[in-house]
């Protein structure tokens, strides 16, 4: 078990190192001629207007929040799913009740038009 996680840790380091090495090599091979026009921020070819912030729509936050709720739901369902073969039928029904409550929440959000992109 520990050797498996050691493998994952080593793999993560290698997976971060390989693109970094490639980018570094390309950084050596490529020319470097910065000038102020090239380094200015791109705004469809005209001069930038205003600092780089935008009006943050609350809809982004709602999508991420609903995703968080369903993510936690699925995390709680993973042990139930793994133990499925050893569970009696009423335990399966308990899991189904869990899912149906969350489906109800999703239907509420749908009716209140909170999931539309506007």
């Amino acid at each position: 078990m520990l050797s498996e996680w050691l493998y994952v840790g080593v793999f993560f380091l290698i997976a971060m190192f390989l693109p970094a090495a490639a980018i570094f090599i390309a950084g050596i091979l490529a020319p470097k001629k910065p000038n102020p026009i090239k380094s200015s921020t791109y705004e469809c070819g005209i001069e930038t207007v205003g600092p780089a912030w935008i009006q943050f729509k609350a809809q982004y936050y709602i999508y991420t929040l609903v995703f968080l709720v369903f993510d936690v739901e699925v995390v709680l369902l993973f042990p139930w799913a793994v133990a499925y073969h050893q569970l009696p039928l009423f335990a399966v029904v308990e899991g189904v009740i869990f899912i149906l409550i969350l489906l109800g929440g999703l239907l509420y959000a749908w009716r209140k038009r909170a999931l539309e992109w506007l």
Binding site: I25, A26, G27, L29, A30, P31, K32, K33, P34, K38, S39, S40, T41, Y42, A52
Partner: peptide
């Protein structure tokens, strides 16, 4: 080609 393109890092 892409290995030899310049990295144009914008300011800021």
């Amino acid at each position: 080609k892409i290995f030899t393109k310049e990295y144009i890092t914008p300011e800021g």
